[in-house]
């Protein structure tokens, strides 16, 4: 598989996609082929995980709470009125776990970590810091790209799990609390056990697989696109903001595109394809 990807990467290495693939393969190679100082790599990895993952938790949790509450509220109040109350669990799985969770988390990481990575690496390039690393025999991909790449993938997965959990449990708590004070929501009589039962009953094996694959893939996309735009800045400080913008925009486009591609198996299963 790696050889095939390498062949494809070499064939198209001059194209944008080819260069992204090449950088992705180089970063992946650093994960399996140990060189340099492991302790230093681990320190950098932990620092990156702290920035990309830990520091993003409050923002992710807040977004998840708002989206989870809105979804639960709509699903538990509007759907029974149109005779679709039995599909409550399906809506939660489809909206939160399958689509919004990975997608919003990826957008957030692309906007926050992706832009920071492109700017950081772009500035390093302009200040000749990346050239300085090369003159010391330090591989910039191993030293700079790989820790960011690994940390973004790990953080993306963890943040998506946190998003889903907060959206479901936090959302439930918010809606239940609202139903105590707002008379319009008093119809929401869902117990926690029934609520979870319906969600779990609506989940398939594919949801579990995609729950892992999607965030990991989006993490790879965001980190590689951001690093590529950062390290390919020419030696001109005016290029840095352009590289950051291009990195974030291209990440958003790629995430949306691949999110659509990930939906294809479900559409095929339902007979739409």
């Amino acid at each position: 598989m790696t050889r095939l990807l390498t062949w494809i990467g070499l064939r198209y290495r001059r194209s944008y996609v080819g260069q992204l693939m090449e950088l992705g393969l180089q970063a992946s190679w650093c994960a399996v082929h140990k060189a340099g100082n492991r302790k230093q790599s681990l320190d950098q990895l932990i620092t990156q995980i702290y920035f990309t993952g830990v520091e993003a938790i409050p923002l992710v949790a807040f977004l998840a709470l708002v989206i989870g509450s809105a979804t639960i509220l709509q699903a538990s109040t509007v759907m029974p009125k149109i005779g679709a109350g039995d599909y409550f669990g399906n809506v939660m799985v489809l909206v939160v776990i399958r689509e919004v969770g990975p997608l919003f988390t990826a957008f957030l990481v692309a906007g926050r970590t992706g832009s920071a990575l492109s700017t950081y690496l772009g500035n390093m390039k302009v200040q000749q810091e990346i050239d300085a690393l090369k003159t010391m025999g330090v591989d910039p991909v191993r030293y700079l790209v790989y820790p960011s790449f690994a940390a973004t993938v790990i953080s993306m997965f963890c943040l998506t799990v946190i998003f889903n959990l907060v959206a479901i449990f936090g959302g439930y708590v918010v809606v239940k609390s609202l139903s105590l004070f707002v008379s319009d929501f008093s119809e929401v009589q869902l117990s926690l056990s029934l609520f979870l039962e319906r969600i779990l009953a609506s989940m398939s094996l594919m949801d579990g697989v995609l729950g892992i694959v999607k965030p990991v893939f989006f993490g790879i996309l965001v980190s590689i696109i951001a690093c590529y735009h950062g390290i390919n800045v020419s030696n001109d400080i005016r290029e840095v903001p352009k590289a950051t913008t291009n990195g974030v925009v291209n990440s958003f486009v790629c995430i949306t595109l691949f999110d659509t591609l990930f939906a294809l198996p479900f559409l095929a299963k339902l007979g739409f394809l």
Binding site: N123, M124, Q127, Q128, A132, L133
Partner: peptide, 8 residues
């Protein structure tokens, strides 16, 4: 380097 190029 002419610019010291230390890691900032």
């Amino acid at each position: 380097f002419q610019s010291p190029a230390l890691i900032s």
